[in-house]
Design a protein around this nucleic acid. Structure first.
Lengths: 315, 315
DNA sequence: AGAATTCATAACCCATAGGTTAATGATACG
DNA sequence: CGTATCATTAACCTATGGGTTATGAATTCT
């Protein structure tokens, strides 16, 4: 059982003092007198049995016990805050919409299907879908502007504070219009690659490094005629109308390949294979509609992997 | 700012009633009169602005708002509980030991130094260090048998639910005893590599795929005389006593190279470079001693990178 | 050394949190 | 239908939570 002496007030005060590194400032922020803050901290230390701050010259310094407790206290407060407005927005009928970021890979195949299933659930909540560059989306996720990002797993440095749930793996392909000379070429594709314009993922995208590594590994140092784009609609239109080569995630062009408007070059790109999944803030508790949406996305992903497995006998 | 009317008492009572699905039983469990419970729930509902329970025949039933809030309330309480005993058990001398897994790379250089610093902190808590294969360690981390794994970043598929903190990067080297014929060889190392026995990392190890890719990239399809080992002590002994080549992380043999018993072959292995760092469960808040240990590891890593930068003028 | 800043202690005060018992609805059960 | 159960509501009481002002102790700045 939890020690009944602890109140939220203790945690709030503690966190505020820790943030301000000053009793005075904290007292100001909290609109109470300075001794009140000191007293509250004393009470907290009483319960914990250790000091969380120590005098440091004219000010104070957090102790290592304080450091540790701070994280927990923060967790408690954010959890509570979330809890409170999770219902208050649930009450108001249409709360803020569930905001999700979808990388291009999933926005053509997975998301439409997932949304169809989601709407069947009749949750009544609105959904906002943002497509964009990975770095941007993750930053928005971190700040809380988004609740969920669906796409490739980002580089580990960017993943701190996030948790990732694997859905399926996919790779990068080199696609061209059907009837493209390279499709019937006798010699190695890589030799003549430089002849055609190439559409690359932008530098900020997740797959870019994979692509670069792959190109280097295959003896291609730099490509002329390089165009960087995030827009899949542009890419699609451009590649259809020219002899350009589009280096892009399978998911984006799966449909086009299937109905024969585009074709993948016959090269082994399995090196560029990597996980696609759901990224959320690590300790956030998903709201009810979000939880449902995540579930429908999982299902959609499962359906599609199954379909792919059947039709192409992959694996 | 959080509504000051909410107290932990409200959450505890709420959770208890939700668990018992009965006001009476909850009142019993909480050692208060039954009206007290009702009142507390009323107050909570007042703050939330919605009912969390509704009468259901002779008893009560949780509402959908209640459902939503329950998860958060639970999270709040467990977070607080953890927070409290993260320090209070610390005070009482010996809590459960901190259990960490260290891959060979770090167990020779980083860990000893980190431990030395850690002991200076006088935390009084016990530490258990396990060395072993990556896959095993990560599984133990996942299950909760370990609190921390220090080593190379694992493949993304294995990282779900984990968070990784980068410390430094390192690469794989090919080492041989000093005086080895290959060191003074005129021709390319790769041509004569097959002549000598080779010690490889085991298949389950993280660096194995890196090594394989590297070998292939340099035109070596398969190596005869291949020995797979995880034991760095065996590797060290064997390589000293024979003409074998040891393919291993820099960290393991840095000391040996420094004092001249072993030497690295003069080949560029920068392709095998990759991040080394701390892996923990994504949403677990580190306990007091663990947090301190992580800090000392960071410091140790920083010291060592600095030392390396100085002595070898790397970068 | 003296002034200024910042946190800690002490003494005090009052609203209310947090409970109590007693009485009053609802429901299910024999 | 009466009666036992379980929750709600009402009336009331008191300990203490949560502040206040005044003062003291320790540093730092000038």
């Amino acid at each position: 059982m939890i020690d009944a002496r602890v109140k939220f007030r203790h945690l709030q005060t503690f966190v505020e003092v820790a943030r301000q590194k000053s009793v005075m400032k904290a007292a100001d922020l909290l609109h109470v007198s300075q001794p009140a803050v000191t007293k509250t901290i004393r009470e907290l230390e009483e319960v914990l049995g250790v000091s969380v701050f120590e005098r440091d010259g004219r000010g104070i310094k957090i102790t290592r016990y304080g450091e540790v407790f701070l994280r927990h206290a923060g967790a408690v407060l954010t959890a509570l805050r979330q809890g409170l407005d999770s219902v208050s927005q649930e009450r108001s009928g249409d709360g803020p919409p569930v905001r999700i970021g979808a990388l291009p890979t999933v926005s053509t195949r997975i998301m439409p299907r997932a949304m169809a299933n989601f709407l069947k659930e009749e949750t009544g909540s609105r959904i906002k879908i943002v497509t964009g560059e990975n770095a941007v989306l993750l930053e928005q996720l971190r700040v809380g502007d988004l609740d969920l990002v669906v796409g490739r797993l980002a580089a580990p440095e960017q993943m701190t504070g996030f948790s990732f749930e694997h859905l399926y793996s996919e790779q990068v392909v080199f696609v061209v219009r059907t009837g493209h000379p390279l499709l019937s070429a006798k010699q190695s594709v890589f030799d003549t690659l430089g002849v055609y314009p190439v559409l690359m993922p932008t530098r900020a995208s997740i797959i870019r490094p994979f692509v670069e590594r792959y190109l280097i590994a295959n003896g291609i140092a730099s490509l002329p005629n390089q165009i960087e784009t995030v827009s899949d609609s542009f890419g699609r239109a451009f590649v259809r109308a020219s002899d350009a080569i589009w280096i892009i995630s399978t998911g984006v062009v799966a449909g086009d390949i299937e109905d024969g408007t585009l074709a993948a070059l016959p090269i082994d790109t399995s090196e560029t294979r990597g996980p696609v999944g759901l990224t959320i803030r690590a300790n956030a508790i998903p709201s009810m509609p979000l939880a449902i949406l995540m579930q429908t996305i999982r299902e959609a992903a499962a359906e599609i992997s199954a379909a792919v497995a059947n039709s192409a006998e992959r694996r």
